[in-house]
């Protein structure tokens, strides 16, 4: 290669790596989508062939990833401002916003059509609605408009177990709605705890998080209220068809810990929080990750034990 042609190539910017396209799919969020969708599929009373189950989870994950790419396309302006998101492919200049949009739309269409072909129309319709909800309702509309953005927008992240359940059964039932509700109610305290110790990021970006619009005191009260409601829901789910003794034991322990954490957050003032670097809030946030993983893990375990006459009630 001549020096001239090398210089020509060097002057081009934004040559993305494969990993950059993968990063557009928000892989960390995708792990939650994959895990909860898998639990929804496993907990369903109808069995599916492992290949069909694998394909279903894969297409749900791709659909979730597509909505992540579309979210990054829409939010590129605020991603440039926030420390946490500054290195994402679009603000870092490795992928153009238009490219991310085309990538997201193509993947979304692909995932919905493939899920319909692999499983059924109900699951595909739910996936399509989830993508629409996350991109249009949450990213475009709620996120920059209301401090309740996390509450309503959290529904998008709560759909995967419902889609997994629908992929197996072809329908929506009380059990799948309960799994949806579990993630829906978990999302606000989880994100508000994060917002308490990442406040300046959201403030700089002009995102109306509750911490920015109503202050930290109100946010602490909201965390406690939502945690109480979540605890009632999570323990109550233990008495339904997806629950069982094992799930109930896990739920009782985790919700007791979660309630204690929320109470500690509620009792603290800003001086105390700043003095220890938001240690309690950070601990609560970490616990919230285990909380969801263990609840859904217990639901999966109950379902896995049923063939041996052990799971469920």
């Amino acid at each position: 290669m001549s020096d001239a042609s090398l210089n020509t190539v060097t002057s081009q910017t934004g040559e993305a790596d494969f990993g950059d396209y993968f990063a557009l799919l928000k892989p960390r969020v995708m792990t939650l989508v994959v895990f909860t969708a898998l639990v929804g599929l496993l907990a369903a009373p109808v069995g599916v062939h492992p290949v069909v189950g694998f394909a279903a989870i894969l297409f749900i994950a791709v659909g979730g990833g597509a909505s992540g790419a579309l979210n990054m396309w829409w939010d590129a302006d605020i991603d440039r401002v926030m420390k946490r998101t500054r290195s994402r492919p679009i603000p870092a200049g490795r992928i153009s916003a238009d490219e991310a949009f085309a990538f997201g739309i193509a993947l979304a269409g692909f995932a919905v059509v493939m899920l319909a072909l692999a499983t059924n129309l109900v699951a595909a319709a739910l996936l399509a609605f989830t993508i629409f909800f996350y991109v249009v309702i949450y990213s475009m509309w709620l996120k920059r408009w209301t401090p309740q953005n996390i509450v309503i927008g959290g529904a998008a992240g709560a759909f995967p177990p419902m889609i997994g359940w629908a992929a197996a059964t072809g329908s929506v039932s009380v059990e799948s709605v309960l799994m949806f509700a579990l993630i829906f109610m978990w999302t606000p305290p989880h994100f508000w705890a994060l917002a308490l110790f990442m406040r300046s990021d959201y403030e700089n970006a002009g995102v109306p998080m509750l911490t920015v619009t109503h202050g930290r005191r109100v946010t602490r009260v909201h965390i406690l209220v939502y945690t109480i409601l979540l605890a009632a829901l999570a323990v109550g789910t233990g008495f339904t068809a997806v629950g069982g003794p094992l799930y109930l034991a896990v739920a009782l322990v985790l919700n007791a810990l979660f309630l204690i954490g929320a109470l500690r957050i509620w009792r603290r003032d800003e001086d105390a929080a700043e003095a220890d670097g938001y240690a309690v809030e950070k601990r609560f946030f970490r616990l919230s990750l285990y909380y969801l993983f263990l609840h859904f893990g217990a639901i999966a375990l109950e379902a896995a034990l049923v063939p041996y006459g052990l799971g469920g009630w």
């Binding site: 090398l6 190539v9 993305a16 494969f18 990993g19």
Partner: peptide
């Protein structure tokens, strides 16, 4: 000379 850009392009195509 294999420029970094070519490596990235190869990885993308391979992926």
């Amino acid at each position: 000379v294999e420029h970094d850009l070519h490596k990235r392009r190869f990885r993308r195509n391979l992926g």
